[in-house]
Every structure is written in structure tokens, then in C-alpha cells.
Amino acid sequence: MQTWTEKVILFVWCGFSYVFLLSPMVVVMGASLHGGEFSAAIKFPPDEPSFQWYSKIPTEQFEALALSLLVAAVATFIAALIAIPAALGLVRSNFKLKFAITSVFRAPLQIPAIVSGIAFLQLYYLIFDTSGLMLAGTIPGMLLGHVFIATPFLFGTIVAVLQRFDHRLEEASYSLGAGRWRTLYRVTLPTIMPGIYSGGLYAFMVSFADVPMSIFLTAPGFVTYPVELFYAMENDFDPSILASSSIVIVFCLAMLLVVQKVVGLETLLRSGGGSAR
């Protein structure tokens, strides 16, 4: 039974934390609507709300967004192809070096992204020196780096789901005459699907939001959206950037709603996608 004072303290404390947490996003969305006098100024709260900046978003920003979406989607897909068999193989088999193997799969999470970024850049230079193939500034090069940072998220959530998996379901499937592949396809995969979805969502979002890895792998005309924003903020920018940022925030919100519909937020939290970090 909480006392009155305690409730008030917790409410104020919590409220402060939420304002701190959410205000930057609210401010970006609000300021993007500014349309009044000196409309090229960045102003919050906005004067004379209008959507004028939304129609003035330059094509480079849309191209960067498209590249980010493409890289995040393909990287998540490849990461799933790596993480699903890895998690199945690891949880099901029994051998002594399990801990060591798990650490290798989780290693990209321990390595700061900026270190991975410079590591991949130097790896690509070495490949260029030996074979003449330049991966930095290309889609495959960017993808490889993003697969590297995205895989542990999927691996972590699928392992978490598999550890709670009821083996009798598979045994039942075998005893009812289903073969190995049929069991995998009809029983095992559907049960670990929530883990794949929530891990995939985190993997996608981490890749979509990444700056420190991508910043080393971009080239002129080949820039992901967060990096484009990063450079814009280091130089001069106009409010069209606020408009495209707001679109991204709405997109993130929409992704959450999709997940809520598909697997439910509770599954997302329980499978530890967030704490995989």
C-alpha cells in the first residue's frame, strides 16, 4: 500500500523522466510544422502551423531513407538466416564449449559500433589491396557491416524463446508420423516465430538507426539516412530535415503498432530484445 506522499513523489519523478525521454521527439515533430514568419528558422512551438516543409524535402533525403530501409531489411533477413540455425543448433546440442560459441555470436554487441566501423573499413582496405575489390561505399560492404551488428539481436531473442520451448511438441509431431523437415517447418519454426519477429524488429531498428558503423562505409551519393542527418547537423540545415525526421518518428511508431498486432508488446519485452543489448 503506497502512501499519498509516495505516490506524488513517484508521479512527479516519473513525469520528469518521461518529459526528458520524449521531449526531443515531440519538439522535432512540432518544429517541423513551423510555417510563420522567417519560416526557414527553427522554432518551437511553431507559428502558423503548416506542412510546407514536407513538400520541400530534397530528393537526397528520400534516397538516403530508401537506402536505409533497403539495407536494414536485407541485413535483417540475412541476419535471420544466420541466427535461426545458430540458435537451434546451440540450444539443442550439448557440448562443452557452448559458452565460448555463444560469446562469439554475441561478440558484436560487446564491441562498440565505432570500433566495428573502423574494423570493417580497414578489412575492406585490406581486401582492396589484395584483390582490387572495393567494398567500402557499396551495398554489399554496407550490408556486411549491418548483418554483423544485427545478428546478435535475433540470436538473443530466438535463444530466449527456444529455452522455454516444450520438446514434447516435437516428439508428438514425430510420433504422429511427421518427418524431420516437416516437424521443423510445421512445429518448431511456428513456435519460435515470436522470437524471430521481435528479434527481427530490434535488428531492423538498430540497423536503420545506425551511425557509427555506416559513417565509415558511406561514399558521396551513397549515404544512409542517419548519416545524412549527422552530416546535415554538423553543417547548415533547413527545416526540411525536421520534416523527414518526423516521418521517421511516425514510421517507428507504426512499426511498433505492427508488432503489437503481430506478436504483442508483452512478447516483445519478454523475449528480451531490448536487453539483448
Binding site: 525521454l21 520524449l22 521531449s23 526531443p24 521527439m25 515531440v26 519538439v27 522535432v28 531498428m205 536503420f208 538507426a209 545506425d210 551511425v211 539516412y225 542517419p226 542527418l229 549527422f230 547537423m233 530535415i241 525536421l242 525526421s245 521517421v248 518518428i249 517507428c252 511508431l253 512499426m255 511498433l256 508488446l265 516483445l268 519485452l269 531490448g274
Partner: peptide, 15 residues
């Protein structure tokens, strides 16, 4: 909270 973890830090710094 979950949405705020999805949004890239660049946008938050912007705000």
C-alpha cells in the same frame, strides 16, 4: 519507451 529506443539518436540530439 520502446518507440524511443527505435528512433535514431541523431533525431533525438536534433530535438
Amino acid at each position: 519507451i520502446v518507440v524511443s529506443t527505435f528512433v535514431t539518436i541523431v533525431i533525438k540530439v536534433f530535438g
